[in-house]
Design a protein around this nucleic acid. Structure first.
Lengths: 252, 252
DNA sequence: AGTGCTTATCGTCAGGCAGACGACTATGAT
DNA sequence: ATCATAGTCGTCTGCCTGACGATAAGCACT
Protein backbone atom coordinates (compact mmCIF):
# COMPACT_ATOMS: atom_id res chain seq x y z
CA UNK A 1 0.00 0.00 0.00
CA UNK A 2 1.32 3.49 -0.78
CA UNK A 3 2.38 5.92 1.87
CA UNK A 4 -0.56 7.86 3.18
CA UNK A 5 0.04 10.45 5.91
CA UNK A 6 -3.59 10.26 6.93
CA UNK A 7 -3.35 6.53 7.55
CA UNK A 8 -2.21 6.90 11.14
CA UNK A 9 -3.67 8.75 14.08
CA UNK A 10 -1.62 11.50 15.73
CA UNK A 11 -0.25 10.93 19.21
CA UNK A 12 1.30 13.16 21.81
CA UNK A 13 4.53 11.71 23.20
CA UNK A 14 5.79 12.56 26.65
CA UNK A 15 8.57 11.42 28.93
CA UNK A 16 7.82 10.74 32.58
CA UNK A 17 10.56 10.31 35.14
CA UNK A 18 10.89 7.98 38.08
CA UNK A 19 13.68 9.70 39.99
CA UNK A 20 14.80 7.64 42.95
CA UNK A 21 17.11 8.47 45.80
CA UNK A 22 17.80 7.19 49.30
CA UNK A 23 17.06 9.60 52.14
CA UNK A 24 17.04 8.77 55.82
CA UNK A 25 17.20 5.02 55.13
CA UNK A 26 14.15 5.12 52.85
CA UNK A 27 13.80 4.81 49.12
CA UNK A 28 12.25 8.06 47.91
CA UNK A 29 10.90 9.28 44.60
CA UNK A 30 10.51 12.77 43.25
CA UNK A 31 6.89 13.88 43.02
CA UNK A 32 5.46 17.11 41.72
CA UNK A 33 2.06 18.59 42.44
CA UNK A 34 -0.13 19.14 39.42
CA UNK A 35 -1.15 22.76 38.92
CA UNK A 36 -3.89 22.19 36.39
CA UNK A 37 -6.54 19.65 35.48
CA UNK A 38 -6.82 16.79 35.11
CA UNK A 39 -5.79 15.57 38.56
CA UNK A 40 -5.24 19.17 39.69
CA UNK A 41 -3.58 19.30 43.09
CA UNK A 42 -2.62 15.62 43.00
CA UNK A 43 0.92 14.35 43.08
CA UNK A 44 2.44 13.05 39.88
CA UNK A 45 5.75 12.06 38.40
CA UNK A 46 7.70 14.84 36.71
CA UNK A 47 7.59 14.81 32.93
CA UNK A 48 6.69 16.70 29.82
CA UNK A 49 6.27 16.63 26.09
CA UNK A 50 9.02 15.46 23.80
CA UNK A 51 9.99 18.28 21.48
CA UNK A 52 9.93 17.98 17.73
CA UNK A 53 13.69 17.70 17.27
CA UNK A 54 14.54 15.77 20.44
CA UNK A 55 15.53 12.19 20.98
CA UNK A 56 13.72 10.40 23.80
CA UNK A 57 16.85 10.22 25.93
CA UNK A 58 17.52 13.90 25.37
CA UNK A 59 13.99 14.78 26.43
CA UNK A 60 14.37 12.73 29.59
CA UNK A 61 17.71 14.33 30.38
CA UNK A 62 16.26 17.78 29.84
CA UNK A 63 13.33 17.09 32.13
CA UNK A 64 15.66 15.67 34.75
CA UNK A 65 17.83 18.78 34.63
CA UNK A 66 14.81 21.06 34.83
CA UNK A 67 13.43 19.28 37.88
CA UNK A 68 16.55 18.49 39.82
CA UNK A 69 19.49 20.27 38.26
CA UNK A 70 21.17 16.92 37.71
CA UNK A 71 23.11 16.22 34.59
CA UNK A 72 22.37 12.84 33.16
CA UNK A 73 25.19 10.37 33.18
CA UNK A 74 26.03 9.52 29.60
CA UNK A 75 25.78 5.75 29.46
CA UNK A 76 28.75 5.70 27.11
CA UNK A 77 30.93 7.78 29.40
CA UNK A 78 33.52 5.52 31.02
CA UNK A 79 34.35 7.56 34.09
CA UNK A 80 32.23 8.56 37.02
CA UNK A 81 31.13 12.14 36.41
CA UNK A 82 28.76 12.34 39.34
CA UNK A 83 25.84 12.67 36.99
CA UNK A 84 22.69 10.73 37.66
CA UNK A 85 22.08 7.36 36.09
CA UNK A 86 19.32 7.58 33.50
CA UNK A 87 17.78 4.76 31.51
CA UNK A 88 14.61 4.07 29.65
CA UNK A 89 12.07 2.17 31.72
CA UNK A 90 8.97 1.33 29.69
CA UNK A 91 6.29 2.94 27.57
CA UNK A 92 2.68 3.40 28.58
CA UNK A 93 0.04 3.97 25.96
CA UNK A 94 -3.39 2.97 27.17
CA UNK A 95 -5.88 4.94 25.08
CA UNK A 96 -7.60 6.20 28.22
CA UNK A 97 -4.55 7.00 30.31
CA UNK A 98 -4.97 10.72 29.70
CA UNK A 99 -8.58 11.93 29.43
CA UNK A 100 -7.64 14.87 27.22
CA UNK A 101 -6.10 13.07 24.28
CA UNK A 102 -4.06 10.12 23.12
CA UNK A 103 -0.76 10.31 24.95
CA UNK A 104 2.05 7.79 24.87
CA UNK A 105 4.49 8.23 27.70
CA UNK A 106 8.03 6.88 27.56
CA UNK A 107 8.95 6.48 31.21
CA UNK A 108 12.57 6.76 32.29
CA UNK A 109 14.28 5.73 35.48
CA UNK A 110 16.84 7.99 37.15
CA UNK A 111 18.93 7.15 40.20
CA UNK A 112 20.53 9.97 42.13
CA UNK A 113 22.46 10.48 45.35
CA UNK A 114 20.73 12.25 48.20
CA UNK A 115 20.12 15.80 47.04
CA UNK A 116 19.25 19.11 48.62
CA UNK A 117 15.57 19.99 48.59
CA UNK A 118 14.05 19.80 45.12
CA UNK A 119 12.83 22.75 43.18
CA UNK A 120 10.15 22.73 40.56
CA UNK A 121 10.21 26.04 38.81
CA UNK A 122 11.48 27.55 42.04
CA UNK A 123 8.40 26.60 43.97
CA UNK A 124 9.41 24.15 46.68
CA UNK A 125 5.85 23.40 47.77
CA UNK A 126 5.16 21.83 44.38
CA UNK A 127 7.92 19.24 44.45
CA UNK A 128 9.12 16.86 47.12
CA UNK A 129 10.95 13.65 47.81
CA UNK A 130 8.45 11.17 49.14
CA UNK A 131 9.05 7.62 50.34
CA UNK A 132 7.87 5.28 47.64
CA UNK A 133 5.90 3.25 50.18
CA UNK A 134 3.89 6.35 50.91
CA UNK A 135 3.33 7.22 47.25
CA UNK A 136 2.24 3.70 46.41
CA UNK A 137 -0.11 2.94 49.28
CA UNK A 138 -3.69 3.24 48.15
CA UNK A 139 -6.24 5.09 50.23
CA UNK A 140 -4.15 5.06 53.37
CA UNK A 141 -2.73 7.78 55.52
CA UNK A 142 0.73 9.27 55.31
CA UNK A 143 3.12 9.62 58.17
CA UNK A 144 1.61 13.02 58.94
CA UNK A 145 -1.82 11.48 59.31
CA UNK A 146 -3.24 13.16 56.23
CA UNK A 147 -5.08 11.00 53.72
CA UNK A 148 -2.98 9.98 50.78
CA UNK A 149 -4.41 10.45 47.32
CA UNK A 150 -3.08 8.07 44.68
CA UNK A 151 -0.75 9.45 42.07
CA UNK A 152 -2.23 11.04 38.96
CA UNK A 153 -2.79 9.14 35.71
CA UNK A 154 -1.15 5.71 35.70
CA UNK A 155 1.84 7.05 37.58
CA UNK A 156 1.45 4.62 40.45
CA UNK A 157 1.99 1.79 37.99
CA UNK A 158 4.96 3.56 36.42
CA UNK A 159 6.51 4.21 39.81
CA UNK A 160 5.97 0.62 40.87
CA UNK A 161 7.63 -0.60 37.69
CA UNK A 162 10.56 1.75 38.22
CA UNK A 163 11.05 0.65 41.80
CA UNK A 164 10.96 -2.98 40.77
CA UNK A 165 13.51 -2.29 38.04
CA UNK A 166 15.82 -0.62 40.53
CA UNK A 167 15.38 -3.40 43.07
CA UNK A 168 16.29 -6.08 40.60
CA UNK A 169 19.00 -4.17 38.82
CA UNK A 170 21.16 -3.53 41.87
CA UNK A 171 21.34 -7.31 42.23
CA UNK A 172 23.41 -7.90 39.16
CA UNK A 173 24.91 -4.51 38.41
CA UNK A 174 26.92 -1.89 40.23
CA UNK A 175 24.01 0.53 39.93
CA UNK A 176 23.63 0.93 43.68
CA UNK A 177 26.65 3.23 43.57
CA UNK A 178 24.48 5.70 41.62
CA UNK A 179 22.68 6.36 44.91
CA UNK A 180 25.96 7.24 46.63
CA UNK A 181 28.10 10.35 46.49
CA UNK A 182 31.36 10.16 44.58
CA UNK A 183 33.19 8.77 47.58
CA UNK A 184 31.42 6.48 49.95
CA UNK A 185 32.04 3.74 52.48
CA UNK A 186 31.04 0.09 52.38
CA UNK A 187 28.56 0.77 55.14
CA UNK A 188 26.93 3.58 53.18
CA UNK A 189 26.60 1.31 50.18
CA UNK A 190 25.11 -1.37 52.38
CA UNK A 191 22.51 1.07 53.69
CA UNK A 192 21.56 1.77 50.08
CA UNK A 193 20.88 -1.90 49.48
CA UNK A 194 18.98 -2.15 52.74
CA UNK A 195 16.80 0.86 51.89
CA UNK A 196 16.07 -0.23 48.34
CA UNK A 197 15.32 -3.82 49.25
CA UNK A 198 13.80 -3.08 52.63
CA UNK A 199 15.82 -5.74 54.38
CA UNK A 200 18.71 -5.94 56.82
CA UNK A 201 22.00 -7.31 55.50
CA UNK A 202 24.86 -8.80 57.46
CA UNK A 203 27.59 -6.16 57.51
CA UNK A 204 30.41 -8.72 57.52
CA UNK A 205 29.18 -10.78 54.61
CA UNK A 206 28.30 -7.65 52.68
CA UNK A 207 31.77 -6.25 53.23
CA UNK A 208 33.37 -9.48 52.08
CA UNK A 209 31.19 -9.63 49.01
CA UNK A 210 31.60 -6.08 47.69
CA UNK A 211 35.30 -5.80 48.42
CA UNK A 212 35.90 -9.18 46.88
CA UNK A 213 34.14 -8.44 43.59
CA UNK A 214 36.77 -7.23 41.12
CA UNK A 215 36.08 -3.81 39.62
CA UNK A 216 33.15 -2.97 41.87
CA UNK A 217 34.92 -0.68 44.34
CA UNK A 218 38.17 1.24 44.10
CA UNK A 219 39.70 2.47 47.36
CA UNK A 220 40.57 6.14 47.33
CA UNK A 221 42.96 5.88 50.24
CA UNK A 222 40.98 8.22 52.47
CA UNK A 223 38.85 7.38 55.45
CA UNK A 224 35.87 8.99 57.10
CA UNK A 225 34.04 8.83 60.38
CA UNK A 226 30.92 10.64 59.20
CA UNK A 227 28.83 7.60 60.14
CA UNK A 228 30.35 7.40 63.62
CA UNK A 229 32.28 4.48 64.96
CA UNK A 230 35.55 3.25 63.64
CA UNK A 231 36.91 5.14 60.62
CA UNK A 232 35.87 3.53 57.36
CA UNK A 233 37.72 3.34 54.10
CA UNK A 234 36.43 5.50 51.29
CA UNK A 235 35.76 3.97 47.89
CA UNK A 236 34.81 5.15 44.46
CA UNK A 237 32.74 3.15 41.95
CA UNK A 238 34.97 0.91 39.86
CA UNK A 239 34.61 0.35 36.17
CA UNK A 240 32.63 -2.88 36.46
CA UNK A 241 28.98 -2.54 35.57
CA UNK A 242 27.92 -6.17 35.77
CA UNK A 243 28.43 -8.11 38.97
CA UNK A 244 29.19 -11.76 38.49
CA UNK A 245 28.19 -13.49 40.67
CA UNK A 246 25.41 -11.10 41.62
CA UNK A 247 24.44 -9.72 44.99
CA UNK A 248 21.76 -11.94 46.44
CA UNK A 249 18.58 -10.45 47.72
CA UNK A 250 17.56 -12.38 50.84
CA UNK A 251 14.53 -14.63 50.47
CA UNK A 252 11.10 -13.59 51.72
CA UNK B 1 0.79 27.12 32.28
CA UNK B 2 -2.61 26.32 30.85
CA UNK B 3 -3.36 23.40 28.61
CA UNK B 4 -2.66 24.20 24.99
CA UNK B 5 -3.25 21.46 22.42
CA UNK B 6 -0.87 23.15 20.01
CA UNK B 7 1.95 23.02 22.55
CA UNK B 8 3.11 19.57 21.50
CA UNK B 9 4.19 18.20 18.15
CA UNK B 10 2.27 15.28 16.64
CA UNK B 11 3.94 11.89 16.42
CA UNK B 12 3.18 8.69 14.63
CA UNK B 13 3.41 5.67 16.95
CA UNK B 14 4.20 2.22 15.65
CA UNK B 15 4.94 -1.17 17.12
CA UNK B 16 7.80 -3.21 15.73
CA UNK B 17 8.23 -6.87 16.54
CA UNK B 18 11.30 -8.93 17.26
CA UNK B 19 9.90 -12.43 16.82
CA UNK B 20 12.45 -15.06 17.75
CA UNK B 21 12.40 -18.79 17.32
CA UNK B 22 14.91 -21.62 17.21
CA UNK B 23 15.23 -23.47 13.91
CA UNK B 24 17.86 -26.00 13.02
CA UNK B 25 19.94 -25.18 16.11
CA UNK B 26 20.05 -21.47 15.25
CA UNK B 27 18.32 -18.47 16.77
CA UNK B 28 16.18 -16.95 14.02
CA UNK B 29 14.10 -13.82 13.71
CA UNK B 30 11.16 -13.03 11.51
CA UNK B 31 12.00 -10.53 8.75
CA UNK B 32 9.74 -9.03 6.12
CA UNK B 33 10.75 -7.44 2.86
CA UNK B 34 9.72 -3.84 2.44
CA UNK B 35 7.49 -3.22 -0.53
CA UNK B 36 7.71 0.56 -0.64
CA UNK B 37 10.21 3.33 0.04
CA UNK B 38 12.05 4.16 2.12
CA UNK B 39 14.33 1.12 2.21
CA UNK B 40 12.29 -0.54 -0.55
CA UNK B 41 13.34 -4.15 -1.08
CA UNK B 42 15.31 -4.28 2.17
CA UNK B 43 14.53 -6.59 5.03
CA UNK B 44 12.89 -5.13 8.10
CA UNK B 45 11.16 -6.19 11.27
CA UNK B 46 7.41 -6.63 11.05
CA UNK B 47 5.36 -3.82 12.52
CA UNK B 48 2.74 -1.20 11.91
CA UNK B 49 0.88 1.79 13.21
CA UNK B 50 -0.90 1.74 16.51
CA UNK B 51 -4.58 2.39 15.95
CA UNK B 52 -6.48 5.18 17.62
CA UNK B 53 -8.29 3.01 20.14
CA UNK B 54 -5.63 0.39 20.74
CA UNK B 55 -3.36 -0.25 23.66
CA UNK B 56 0.31 -0.83 22.81
CA UNK B 57 0.15 -4.48 23.85
CA UNK B 58 -2.98 -4.98 21.79
CA UNK B 59 -1.33 -3.48 18.74
CA UNK B 60 1.67 -5.74 19.18
CA UNK B 61 -0.55 -8.80 19.59
CA UNK B 62 -2.51 -7.85 16.49
CA UNK B 63 0.63 -7.44 14.41
CA UNK B 64 1.97 -10.73 15.70
CA UNK B 65 -1.23 -12.51 14.72
CA UNK B 66 -1.22 -10.89 11.30
CA UNK B 67 2.34 -11.94 10.58
CA UNK B 68 2.49 -15.37 12.14
CA UNK B 69 -1.00 -16.46 13.11
CA UNK B 70 0.17 -16.78 16.70
CA UNK B 71 -2.01 -15.74 19.58
CA UNK B 72 -0.16 -13.75 22.15
CA UNK B 73 0.20 -15.38 25.52
CA UNK B 74 -1.64 -13.25 28.03
CA UNK B 75 0.96 -12.49 30.71
CA UNK B 76 -1.76 -12.79 33.35
CA UNK B 77 -2.91 -16.18 32.14
CA UNK B 78 -1.74 -18.86 34.57
CA UNK B 79 -1.80 -21.89 32.31
CA UNK B 80 0.21 -22.69 29.25
CA UNK B 81 -2.03 -21.96 26.29
CA UNK B 82 0.61 -22.51 23.64
CA UNK B 83 0.47 -18.85 22.68
CA UNK B 84 3.66 -16.97 22.06
CA UNK B 85 5.33 -15.00 24.77
CA UNK B 86 5.04 -11.28 24.09
CA UNK B 87 6.55 -8.45 26.08
CA UNK B 88 7.47 -4.85 25.56
CA UNK B 89 11.11 -4.39 24.68
CA UNK B 90 12.01 -0.70 24.36
CA UNK B 91 11.00 2.43 22.54
CA UNK B 92 12.96 4.09 19.77
CA UNK B 93 12.37 7.72 18.94
CA UNK B 94 15.33 9.31 17.24
CA UNK B 95 13.99 12.25 15.23
CA UNK B 96 15.71 10.98 12.11
CA UNK B 97 14.93 7.28 12.42
CA UNK B 98 12.25 7.57 9.72
CA UNK B 99 12.97 10.05 6.93
CA UNK B 100 9.29 10.64 6.24
CA UNK B 101 8.14 11.94 9.56
CA UNK B 102 8.51 11.76 13.30
CA UNK B 103 7.85 8.17 14.28
CA UNK B 104 8.19 6.66 17.73
CA UNK B 105 8.34 2.90 17.64
CA UNK B 106 7.51 0.76 20.66
CA UNK B 107 9.39 -2.45 20.00
CA UNK B 108 8.08 -5.73 21.40
CA UNK B 109 9.77 -9.07 21.82
CA UNK B 110 7.97 -12.29 20.96
CA UNK B 111 9.27 -15.81 21.51
CA UNK B 112 7.69 -18.65 19.58
CA UNK B 113 8.23 -22.37 19.02
CA UNK B 114 9.45 -23.45 15.61
CA UNK B 115 6.69 -22.67 13.16
CA UNK B 116 5.74 -23.62 9.68
CA UNK B 117 6.86 -21.20 6.99
CA UNK B 118 5.78 -17.67 7.67
CA UNK B 119 3.23 -15.79 5.63
CA UNK B 120 3.04 -12.07 5.20
CA UNK B 121 -0.24 -11.24 3.60
CA UNK B 122 -0.07 -14.57 1.86
CA UNK B 123 3.15 -13.79 0.06
CA UNK B 124 5.83 -16.13 1.32
CA UNK B 125 8.66 -14.49 -0.59
CA UNK B 126 8.17 -11.37 1.49
CA UNK B 127 8.67 -12.94 4.88
CA UNK B 128 11.22 -15.38 6.21
CA UNK B 129 12.92 -16.72 9.28
CA UNK B 130 16.55 -15.67 9.15
CA UNK B 131 19.33 -16.49 11.58
CA UNK B 132 19.95 -13.43 13.71
CA UNK B 133 23.69 -13.68 13.04
CA UNK B 134 22.96 -13.24 9.37
CA UNK B 135 20.58 -10.34 9.90
CA UNK B 136 23.00 -8.54 12.18
CA UNK B 137 26.24 -8.93 10.29
CA UNK B 138 27.11 -5.71 8.52
CA UNK B 139 28.23 -5.68 4.90
CA UNK B 140 29.05 -9.36 4.83
CA UNK B 141 27.76 -12.23 2.82
CA UNK B 142 24.99 -14.62 3.77
CA UNK B 143 25.28 -18.38 3.72
CA UNK B 144 24.11 -18.36 0.11
CA UNK B 145 26.97 -16.09 -0.92
CA UNK B 146 24.77 -13.11 -1.67
CA UNK B 147 25.69 -9.77 -0.16
CA UNK B 148 23.70 -8.94 2.94
CA UNK B 149 22.09 -5.53 3.17
CA UNK B 150 21.59 -4.23 6.70
CA UNK B 151 18.06 -4.10 8.06
CA UNK B 152 15.93 -1.05 7.32
CA UNK B 153 15.66 1.92 9.67
CA UNK B 154 17.21 1.25 13.08
CA UNK B 155 15.93 -2.31 13.05
CA UNK B 156 19.37 -3.82 13.45
CA UNK B 157 19.65 -2.04 16.78
CA UNK B 158 16.18 -3.14 17.80
CA UNK B 159 16.91 -6.73 16.84
CA UNK B 160 20.20 -6.68 18.72
CA UNK B 161 18.45 -5.35 21.81
CA UNK B 162 15.77 -8.01 21.51
CA UNK B 163 18.30 -10.79 21.17
CA UNK B 164 20.20 -9.53 24.16
CA UNK B 165 17.00 -9.37 26.18
CA UNK B 166 16.19 -12.96 25.25
CA UNK B 167 19.71 -14.15 26.03
CA UNK B 168 19.71 -12.64 29.47
CA UNK B 169 16.11 -13.43 30.32
CA UNK B 170 16.37 -17.18 29.84
CA UNK B 171 19.03 -17.10 32.54
CA UNK B 172 16.74 -16.19 35.37
CA UNK B 173 13.31 -17.10 34.03
CA UNK B 174 11.62 -20.10 32.51
CA UNK B 175 11.19 -18.23 29.25
CA UNK B 176 13.20 -20.73 27.25
CA UNK B 177 10.16 -22.99 27.32
CA UNK B 178 8.42 -20.43 25.10
CA UNK B 179 10.67 -21.66 22.29
CA UNK B 180 9.50 -25.24 22.79
CA UNK B 181 6.28 -26.96 21.79
CA UNK B 182 3.78 -27.78 24.51
CA UNK B 183 5.54 -31.02 25.34
CA UNK B 184 9.27 -31.25 25.06
CA UNK B 185 12.26 -33.13 26.39
CA UNK B 186 15.14 -31.95 28.53
CA UNK B 187 17.43 -32.33 25.54
CA UNK B 188 15.21 -30.16 23.38
CA UNK B 189 15.19 -27.50 26.04
CA UNK B 190 18.96 -27.73 26.27
CA UNK B 191 19.28 -27.21 22.53
CA UNK B 192 17.24 -24.05 22.92
CA UNK B 193 19.70 -22.70 25.46
CA UNK B 194 22.61 -23.72 23.27
CA UNK B 195 21.13 -22.02 20.22
CA UNK B 196 20.20 -18.81 22.01
CA UNK B 197 23.49 -18.52 23.85
CA UNK B 198 25.62 -20.00 21.11
CA UNK B 199 27.47 -22.33 23.49
CA UNK B 200 27.60 -26.01 24.27
CA UNK B 201 26.21 -27.14 27.61
CA UNK B 202 26.96 -30.30 29.51
CA UNK B 203 23.89 -32.55 29.10
CA UNK B 204 24.31 -34.13 32.52
CA UNK B 205 24.64 -30.94 34.49
CA UNK B 206 21.85 -29.32 32.49
CA UNK B 207 19.57 -32.25 33.21
CA UNK B 208 20.34 -32.11 36.91
CA UNK B 209 19.73 -28.38 37.00
CA UNK B 210 16.39 -28.15 35.20
CA UNK B 211 14.86 -31.24 36.75
CA UNK B 212 16.00 -30.09 40.17
CA UNK B 213 14.48 -26.61 39.96
CA UNK B 214 11.02 -26.76 41.55
CA UNK B 215 8.21 -25.62 39.28
CA UNK B 216 10.30 -25.40 36.14
CA UNK B 217 9.28 -28.66 34.49
CA UNK B 218 6.31 -30.94 35.01
CA UNK B 219 6.58 -34.48 33.65
CA UNK B 220 3.68 -35.52 31.49
CA UNK B 221 4.37 -39.22 31.85
CA UNK B 222 4.97 -39.74 28.17
CA UNK B 223 8.22 -40.36 26.38
CA UNK B 224 9.48 -39.76 22.87
CA UNK B 225 12.28 -40.90 20.63
CA UNK B 226 11.91 -38.13 18.06
CA UNK B 227 15.46 -37.03 18.72
CA UNK B 228 16.80 -40.55 18.33
CA UNK B 229 18.62 -42.49 20.98
CA UNK B 230 17.14 -43.61 24.24
CA UNK B 231 13.54 -42.51 24.82
CA UNK B 232 13.33 -39.25 26.72
CA UNK B 233 10.74 -38.14 29.21
CA UNK B 234 8.31 -35.48 28.05
CA UNK B 235 7.74 -32.39 30.14
CA UNK B 236 5.47 -29.41 30.13
CA UNK B 237 6.41 -25.95 31.40
CA UNK B 238 5.69 -25.64 35.11
CA UNK B 239 4.16 -22.66 36.79
CA UNK B 240 7.42 -21.12 37.92
CA UNK B 241 8.44 -18.03 36.01
CA UNK B 242 11.52 -16.99 37.97
CA UNK B 243 14.39 -19.40 38.41
CA UNK B 244 16.24 -19.13 41.64
CA UNK B 245 19.10 -19.84 41.50
CA UNK B 246 19.34 -18.94 37.82
CA UNK B 247 20.75 -20.90 34.92
CA UNK B 248 24.34 -19.85 34.47
CA UNK B 249 25.58 -18.79 31.09
CA UNK B 250 29.13 -20.13 30.70
CA UNK B 251 31.91 -17.56 30.76
CA UNK B 252 33.48 -16.39 27.56
C1' DA C 1 42.21 8.16 81.54
C1' DG C 2 38.72 4.94 81.51
C1' DT C 3 34.15 3.05 80.16
C1' DG C 4 30.75 2.18 76.94
C1' DC C 5 28.69 2.62 72.43
C1' DT C 6 29.09 2.54 67.59
C1' DT C 7 30.69 1.11 63.26
C1' DA C 8 34.29 -1.26 60.54
C1' DT C 9 36.93 -5.23 59.39
C1' DC C 10 38.90 -9.92 59.61
C1' DG C 11 38.25 -14.97 60.32
C1' DT C 12 36.08 -19.49 60.72
C1' DC C 13 32.98 -23.06 59.64
C1' DA C 14 29.28 -25.77 57.47
C1' DG C 15 26.05 -26.36 53.63
C1' DG C 16 24.75 -25.85 48.88
C1' DC C 17 25.55 -25.55 44.14
C1' DA C 18 28.12 -25.84 39.74
C1' DG C 19 31.66 -27.73 36.67
C1' DA C 20 34.11 -31.84 35.22
C1' DC C 21 33.39 -36.23 34.09
C1' DG C 22 32.58 -41.58 34.70
C1' DA C 23 29.09 -45.04 34.14
C1' DC C 24 25.02 -47.11 32.65
C1' DT C 25 20.49 -47.38 29.88
C1' DA C 26 17.39 -47.77 26.04
C1' DT C 27 16.34 -46.97 21.60
C1' DG C 28 17.14 -47.17 16.12
C1' DA C 29 20.41 -48.17 12.27
C1' DT C 30 23.58 -51.35 9.89
C1' DA D 1 24.76 -58.71 17.09
C1' DT D 2 27.04 -54.50 17.04
C1' DC D 3 27.29 -49.65 16.84
C1' DA D 4 25.88 -44.95 17.22
C1' DT D 5 23.03 -41.81 19.60
C1' DA D 6 20.82 -39.61 23.25
C1' DG D 7 19.17 -39.78 27.99
C1' DT D 8 19.83 -40.38 32.99
C1' DC D 9 22.13 -41.14 37.44
C1' DG D 10 26.31 -40.52 40.45
C1' DT D 11 30.64 -38.78 42.33
C1' DC D 12 34.02 -35.51 43.51
C1' DT D 13 36.02 -31.02 44.13
C1' DG D 14 36.13 -26.16 44.54
C1' DC D 15 33.75 -21.90 45.28
C1' DC D 16 30.40 -19.04 47.35
C1' DT D 17 27.16 -17.86 50.87
C1' DG D 18 24.97 -17.45 55.36
C1' DA D 19 25.70 -17.54 60.29
C1' DC D 20 28.35 -15.69 63.59
C1' DG D 21 32.67 -14.95 66.83
C1' DA D 22 36.34 -11.71 67.54
C1' DT D 23 38.98 -7.59 67.15
C1' DA D 24 39.83 -2.60 65.88
C1' DA D 25 39.31 2.29 66.15
C1' DG D 26 36.87 6.15 66.53
C1' DC D 27 33.43 9.34 69.74
C1' DA D 28 30.84 10.71 74.02
C1' DC D 29 30.56 10.52 78.28
C1' DT D 30 32.26 10.50 83.29
Amino acid sequence: MPYDPSAFPPFAVTVDLVVLTVRRHALCALAVRRGEPPFQGRWALPGGFVRADEDLAQAAARELAEETGLRAHDPAAPAQDNGAHLEQLATYGDPKRDPRMRVVSVAHLALAPDLPAPRAGGDASNARWAPVDELLQQGGYGRDGEPVAPLAFDHAQILADGVERARSKIEYSSLATAFCPTEFTVGELRRVYEAVWGVALDPRNFHRKVTGTPGFLVPTGGTTTRQGGRPAQLFRAGGATLLNPPMLRPEV
